[in-house]
């Protein structure tokens, strides 16, 4: 692909946002960055990325970490900053990619190549999907969704001025429950192609 294209996808847990991101990455022939970002960073730093996972997309615990002269010993914060730096380096290099979460809509806002998307979903649809995918009873699926979304919201809002899921922060926000994942991806593909055409 000639022109740089960066697609950021924020998502509610259970909305199918990740699946849609995978479809878009495949359709546009782009690399997808999600938790695999940590492996890339680990290999770049020549360290074992296994220890990074538990700190991925987790908000900073203010009681168990401190900041001194701009140095934070919150592993969550350091891992988040490493990911932001990595994404910014890639974007500055002119690379095209799809990124899931990681505050990308804010961190990469300066790049004209960015198209930011937020995927949400109807509550019942999300619960049904999480029950099916994770084999959870109803009550547990509901708790799991609430917990994951709270974590994502706290993580996002700690690093960004704009609020997580607020449609004003994204180019497009869409409810995937109305059309389903496949048709939502079709619609987004169309939207992205039109954006690209307008950029010419």
């Amino acid at each position: 692909m000639g022109k740089q294209l960066i697609i950021s996808i924020g998502r509610e847990f259970g909305s199918g946002g990740h699946e849609i991101a995978e479809m878009l990455a495949e359709r546009f022939g782009l690399k997808l960055y999600d938790s695999n970002l940590l492996d890339e960073i680990a290999s770049e730093k020549n360290v074992d990325g296994y220890h990074f996972e538990k700190y991925d997309e987790v908000p900073r615990n203010i009681l168990f970490s401190r900041k001194v002269k701009g140095f934070s010993n919150s592993m969550e914060e350091n891992i988040a900053n490493m990911q932001f730096d990595y994404l910014q380096k890639k974007a500055a290099k002119g690379d095209s990619f799809v990124v899931v979460g990681r505050c990308a809509e804010t961190m990469l806002k300066a790049y004209p190549a960015l198209i930011s998307i937020f995927i949400l979903g109807d509550w019942d649809h999300k619960v049904e999907r999480v029950q099916r995918l994770y084999h959870l009873p109803l009550a547990e699926a509901e708790t799991y969704i609430l917990r994951q979304d709270k974590k994502r919201k706290n993580y996002h809002n700690y690093y960004c001025n704009g609020k997580w899921g607020d449609s004003r922060n994204y180019d497009i926000s869409i409810n995937s429950s109305k059309l389903g994942e496949e048709a939502t991806a079709d619609m987004l593909e169309d939207y992205i192609r039109k954006c690209l055409a307008l950029r010419d």
């Binding site: 168990f64 001194v68 002269k69 140095f71 934070s72 010993n73 891992i79 490493m82």
Partner: peptide, 20 residues
């Protein structure tokens, strides 16, 4: 890790370099 400034800075430098 939060008891003194040196602890914070030392662990932060390690984390930044990929050693949480």
């Amino acid at each position: 890790p939060i008891g003194a400034s040196a602890n914070v800075v030392g662990t932060a430098v390690a984390a930044k370099e990929g050693y949480p």
